[in-house]
Design a protein around this nucleic acid. Structure first.
Lengths: 178, 178
DNA sequence: CGCATTTTGTCTCATACGATACAATAAAGT
DNA sequence: ACTTTATTGTATCGTATGAGACAAAATGCG
């Protein structure tokens, strides 16, 4: 007998409750065996994808380039738009002020970016990549690109625009929710 | 002049390079201003969504229930399938052995799960939720469910199945990539 | 059997990270 | 102008967490 008859929505999944309670022998349980029976089938998938896709890259960049996540995230942003402020990067990435501040300090100490206080608003620090920063970024960018290509390869090219559209909707929605 | 003419793919985005290099006044820079000019427009969106959607919940559950991420992740899995092993949960969630082991130890100490070593394979520990565990899970589940509903509300119902299909493709692909 | 190899789970350690409080500047209200 | 209030960024501190080494059990191979 399943012991998990908890939560209001559990009843909605009652027809699935007939699944074996004791796992048969050594059968390996798969992600898809349970994620649709949870109350968060989409968020579960998103979380799983990020756990498996993003985490290893974070560790690789730490080990290989000595850059923590906020650091190369900042470089990624500055590569596409010079003179961003820490606040800009927070908004664009969803990282916290804390993390960006730390990343900026580390990058500056390494000489990979420069900080210049804004003339109009003394609180703002405009950030720019140095040549060294661009050199490092030139090494991490192809890695990110290759990984993106591998990820997307399973979605037919004709469908990618539609998929991107869904993600844009979610991006706006999570901003609303915050 | 933009200083970021770095990386092989930059040329492909040349038509976008005409964007203003110095930010005009105090204009707030948005996520969508740059994410399509990076080499990882999809992964960037996925990362952003997770940063803004998942992180706050992780912090809330830590503060409100004293459960770290591996802990409530384990409960989520056990709620849908009793008797899972730590290894099963790793495969299903994309979390590392380490994290699951830690979560299991904490949950057991709190009396929220029980561990029972498998008769056939002495290395395996079969996990089960206790009544207390189910009680806690009954409190976190609605929160997760509400959040999922809010997230998905922006995707038309008729399209959700298609979206879920895309995510399934990505789930399988990241498993392949690992 | 007997020995190497693999698998499962735990432990220790260094560290990246979020929470909180704070300083500096700007903006708004009177 | 002068006093709140908000915004931007920084510093300190406790903790969650990944890396790596390890123990125990199972499996493969001679």
């Amino acid at each position: 007998m399943r012991q998990n008859a908890v939560g209001a929505t559990r009843a909605a999944c009652a027809m699935l409750a007939a699944l074996p309670t004791a796992l048969p022998g050594k059968r390996r349980v798969n992600l898809f065996d349970i994620c649709d029976r949870t109350v968060m089938p989409i968020a579960y998938r998103l979380g799983f994808i990020m756990n498996v896709y993003r985490e290893p890259i974070i560790r690789q960049f730490e080990a290989e380039f000595g850059l923590i996540r906020p650091e190369w995230t900042i470089l990624l942003c500055l590569a596409e738009q010079d003179g961003l402020t820490a606040r800009d990067i927070c908004d664009m990435t969803g990282l916290l002020r804390n993390a960006i501040s730390r990343g900026v300090a580390l990058l500056e100490k390494k000489g990979l970016i420069t900080r210049q206080s804004d003339r109009a608003d003394g609180r703002l620090m405009r950030l720019s990549m140095t040549d060294d920063g661009q050199a490092i970024f030139a090494r991490i960018e192809p890695i990110l690109q290759a990984r993106e290509a591998a990820l997307l390869s399973v979605i037919p090219e004709a469908e990618r625009e539609r998929f991107r559209g869904y993600l844009d909707l979610l991006c706006r929605q999570v901003q609303e929710m915050a």
